[in-house]
Design a binder for these strands. Structure first.
Lengths: 199, 199
DNA sequence: TGTACATCAGTGAACGCGCGTTCACTGATGTAC
DNA sequence: TGTACATCAGTGAACGCGCGTTCACTGATGTAC
C-alpha cells in the first residue's frame, strides 16, 4: 500500500504541469525557469527532479496537453462537415488556436528533445494527423493509406508555414488581417487541385 | 586620409563574417560563440565589438550573405522558364538550397533580432519575394501588385513550411525521399487553382 | 621629408550574471511483527 | 492496534559552468607644422 505516496506524487506532477503551463502561457517557453515553476507549484526547486526527469520532461508534458487541446479544438471544428468544409475548418481552426494560444503553441515547435518521443506524446501527434487524413480520404477515396498520410503531412506543413510566418510577423509572413482570406483561398486551391488529380 | 584604417577595418569585418559563416555552417547557430569566431578570425575577443555592434549584428551579416546566395540560386533556377516551370523550379530550388546549406539556412529563421531590420538586409528579403512575384504575375496578370505580394508570401510560407518540417524530421514532416514529389504535386495544385480562379 | 603629438582600432583579462542540476539532510509514509 | 525500524519523497543551499560584454591599456595610424 503506497496509495498516499502515489497520490501526493500525482498531485505534485499536476501542480508542476499547471505551473509550467501558466508560465509558458504568460511569458513563453524561452522565459521558463525551473525556479519559477517550482515556486509557483509550491514545492522546492529539487522537487521538480523527483516528479520529472528534468525540465525538458516537464515541458514535454505541457506540450502534450497543448497538443491534446489543439486536437479537441480541431475535432470540434470539423464535426459534421463535408470534406471540403472540414479542410477549410481545419486550416482556420488551426490559425485560431495558434493565435489564441500563441506562446503555448510556439512551445510545441520551439522545444527540441534529444531523447526519443515517448509513446504517450506520439499518440497525440498521430491524432493530429488523423484529423486531416479523415477529410482527405473522403475527398480522394482512391488514395492508399500511405499516400493519404503523406498528403496530410504536406498539407499540415503548408498550413503551418503560412500560419507561423504570419504570426511571427516575419517579412515573408502575410499580415494578420489577410490571414483568414489567404488560408481560405489556399485551401480551395488544394481542393481544386485534388479534384483535378482525381479525374 | 584614413585609408589604411578603413582598409583594415574592412578586412577584419570580412574575416569575422567568414569565420562566423564557417562556424555556423559546421556547428549551427546555437553553437556559435564569440570566442570561437574571433579566434578563427585571428583577432582578440574584444575586436568583435570594434567591427560590429555585437554578436547579433555579426550574425545578421552572415544571414544577409546566405539570403543573397539563396536569391542567386533561385534566380539561376528560374532563368528562362515559363511561369509554371519557374514556380516548380523555385520550390525545388528552395528545398535543394535548404538541404545543402542546412545550418546556414536554419540560422535565417532561428535568429531573432530585437532591433529593426536594417535596409541592407531588407533589400535581400525583397529580392526573395520578387523571385516569386515574377512568375506569379505572368500566371495571373489580372492581380494587383498588392495581391501578388500577398500571394507570393502565402506561397513562400507554404513551401517553407513543407521544406522545414521535412528537414527537421518532425513527426508532421514528410520523409526526405518523398519531398521532391510532394513539392511538385503541391506546386501543381497551386497552379491549377490559380488557373481555375483566373477563369 | 621629418618630428611631436593625438587619436582610435585592437587587446585580452576580468566582470557579471544566469540557471539547470545535484546532494546531504529531514520528516512523512510504509512495513514488519 | 501499537511500536520500532526502513524507506524514500521532498528540501534548498551550493555547485558548476557557460559566455556575451566591458574597459583600462598599447601600439599602430593619422594630423599638424
Amino acid at each position: 500500500m503506497t496509495a498516499k505516496r502515489d497520490e501526493k506524487r500525482k498531485i505534485l506532477r499536476t501542480k508542476l504541469i499547471d505551473a509550467a503551463h501558466n508560465r509558458i502561457k504568460i511569458n513563453g517557453l524561452p522565459e521558463l525557469r525551473a525556479r519559477d515553476v517550482t515556486s509557483d507549484a509550491g514545492c522546492a526547486l529539487g522537487g521538480l527532479y523527483t516528479a520529472f526527469d528534468d525540465l525538458d520532461d516537464l515541458i514535454l508534458h505541457v506540450n502534450a496537453r497543448t497538443l491534446h487541446r489543439l486536437n479537441t479544438a480541431l475535432e470540434k471544428a470539423t464535426a459534421g462537415r463535408d470534406p471540403s468544409g472540414a479542410l477549410h475548418a481545419l486550416a482556420l481552426g488551426y490559425a485560431a488556436f495558434a493565435r489564441s494560444n500563441r506562446t503555448l503553441w510556439d512551445a510545441l515547435f520551439e522545444h527540441r528533445l534529444d531523447r526519443d518521443t515517448p509513446d504517450w506524446f506520439q499518440s497525440e501527434q498521430i491524432s493530429l494527423l488523423q484529423n486531416i487524413v479523415g477529410p482527405l480520404a473522403r475527398l480522394q477515396p482512391a488514395l492508399t493509406e500511405s499516400e493519404l498520410h503523406l498528403r496530410a503531412r504536406t498539407y499540415f506543413s503548408a498550413v503551418h508555414g503560412i500560419v507561423s510566418m504570419s504570426l511571427q510577423g516575419r517579412f515573408v509572413g502575410i499580415p494578420g488581417k489577410a490571414l483568414r482570406a489567404e488560408l481560405d483561398r489556399f485551401v480551395e486551391f488544394i481542393i481544386i487541385g485534388s479534384a483535378a488529380q482525381a479525374d
